[in-house]
């Protein structure tokens, strides 16, 4: 590509590359899902730290207040009441899906990184299938999807049955 492209064009192209996984095989789907799940879990993680932080007094409190226990119990109960609606239940079920996927797919990547379950290297002739996606690795990818679906069903049952 001739000339210098601006940052925004590079960003848009890069985002399109990892957000659109079609036509590149299973490995690209794994890559895209691993990243999307990672970003979503990070957002949940930060929100969880902020939310639990308010239970003990929020950002301004760095000592143990005299009424700490009553305060925490009151805010905790209010927080649970606030979060008890189908929107947050659905959100948590999706987090469950992503956490389960990220876990098993992460183990797959860990194993692939150390060469476990990979096929033998072959001559890269046209139409060759990458050996990085051996039957073992494929099975692990589908196992991560299966576990994620299980987690989605489990958390949906646990939260919609209980909180709402």
């Amino acid at each position: 590509m001739a000339g210098r492209r601006n940052g925004l064009a590079v960003l848009v192209e890069a985002l399109r590359t990892w957000l659109v996984p079609y036509r590149y095989g299973l490995e690209r789907w794994s890559y895209t899902l691993q990243r999307i799940s990672g970003v979503v879990i990070t957002l949940y993680f930060v929100a969880h730290i902020v939310e639990t932080g308010y239970v003990v007094g929020g950002p301004s409190v760095w000592t143990i207040r005299p009424d700490a226990q009553q305060y925490a119990e009151r805010v905790w109960t209010e927080t649970i009441k606030f979060l008890s609606n189908p929107l947050f239940d659905a959100g948590l079920a999706i987090i469950g899906f992503f956490v389960a996927f990220h876990t098993i797919n992460g183990i797959r990547l860990f194993l692939a990184h150390f060469g476990w379950g990979l096929g033998r290297p072959t001559r890269p002739e046209p139409m060759h299938r990458p050996q990085s996606m051996s039957p073992t690795q494929r099975a692990l990818f589908w196992a991560s999807i299966a576990f994620a679906v299980f987690a989605l069903v489990y958390t949906t049952n646990a939260f919609f049955g209980v909180l709402a």
Binding site: I49, T52, G53, V55, V56, P59, V61, W62, I64, A68
Partner: peptide, 12 residues
């Protein structure tokens, strides 16, 4: 911030 939450919660 998270460590502060854990320490206070542990103390309570």
């Amino acid at each position: 911030y998270g460590t502060r939450t854990i320490i206070i919660a542990y103390s309570i």
